[in-house]
Amino acid sequence: MEKSILVVNSEPNDINTIFKFYDLAVAHQKKVSPQQWQGFSKDLVKQEIKEYRQYKILVDGKVAAIFAITYNDPQIWDGKDDDAVYIHRIVTHPDFRGQNFVKVIINWAREYAKAAPIDYIRMDTWADNEKLLQYYTSCGFEHVGQKVVEPNSSLPKHYEGITLNLFEIKL
């Protein structure tokens, strides 16, 4: 039987689930990387939910993955003002890993772009993660460069002083 996969907006009552997913992601990052997320502000996530920029992927009604979007990312993308959707903080529950949710997100973004002025789908990840670089390019993203984040930026703490790989899909 085929699984039902839906991408829907997160709701205020999803906040605990979202932070549980972040905790699961950090636990996984500790196993596979010297770098980990340093936590996120509940106010930030509540604002994303309010602005319909926090999403969940449901598989047969269960939350399988989460992600957030924004429409500009000037500190990472050097102020590019192209019409774009920037994908952030993709987290897949361990029970659902390996199900290619990045491709689900790309398909969602392509559909989303039909109703919004979006020319690019963009994302970033730590540059020292070769496995993610290969995975994102296999999903259709083009690796378009790197960005060194300066210390004391206003970005979350885990961005400070690191190099990021930048990816985009031209629509």
Rank of each mutant, 00 (worst) to 15 (best):
29 Q>K: 03
119 D>I: 07
92 T>Q: 05
155 L>P: 05
66 I>F: 01
140 G>L: 09
16 N>P: 01
76 I>P: 01
160 E>V: 00
127 A>Y: 07
107 N>G: 11
105 I>W: 05
44 L>P: 00
124 D>T: 02
19 F>L: 09
100 N>H: 15
144 V>K: 14
95 D>T: 07
118 I>K: 07
136 Y>K: 04
157 K>F: 08
72 N>P: 00
94 P>S: 13
23 D>V: 01
70 T>N: 09
51 E>Y: 06
2 E>Y: 12
71 Y>Q: 09
76 I>V: 15
48 E>K: 12
136 Y>D: 03
1 M>K: 11
100 N>P: 00
87 I>G: 00
162 I>C: 10
90 I>K: 03
84 A>S: 15
97 R>Y: 12
14 D>L: 03
162 I>H: 11
160 E>Y: 05
97 R>D: 07
63 V>T: 15
141 F>D: 01
31 K>F: 05
62 K>V: 14
69 I>F: 05
2 E>D: 14
92 T>G: 02
23 D>A: 15
53 R>D: 00
94 P>Y: 13
113 A>I: 07
170 K>E: 14
119 D>P: 00
123 M>T: 09
145 G>C: 10
146 Q>G: 11
15 I>K: 04
127 A>M: 04
149 V>N: 04
12 P>Y: 08
48 E>M: 09
108 W>Y: 15
163 T>V: 12
69 I>P: 01
136 Y>S: 04
96 F>D: 03
54 Q>W: 03
36 Q>G: 09
103 K>S: 14
30 K>C: 12
36 Q>S: 15
170 K>T: 13
145 G>A: 09
82 D>R: 14
102 V>R: 01
133 L>F: 10
14 D>V: 02
32 V>Y: 13
78 D>V: 11
24 L>H: 03
156 P>M: 07
102 V>L: 15
88 H>W: 08
118 I>G: 02
5 I>C: 05
107 N>L: 14
74 P>H: 13
101 F>G: 01
27 A>Y: 08
52 Y>L: 13
22 Y>L: 10
159 Y>E: 04
93 H>Q: 06
28 H>P: 00
29 Q>P: 01
90 I>W: 07
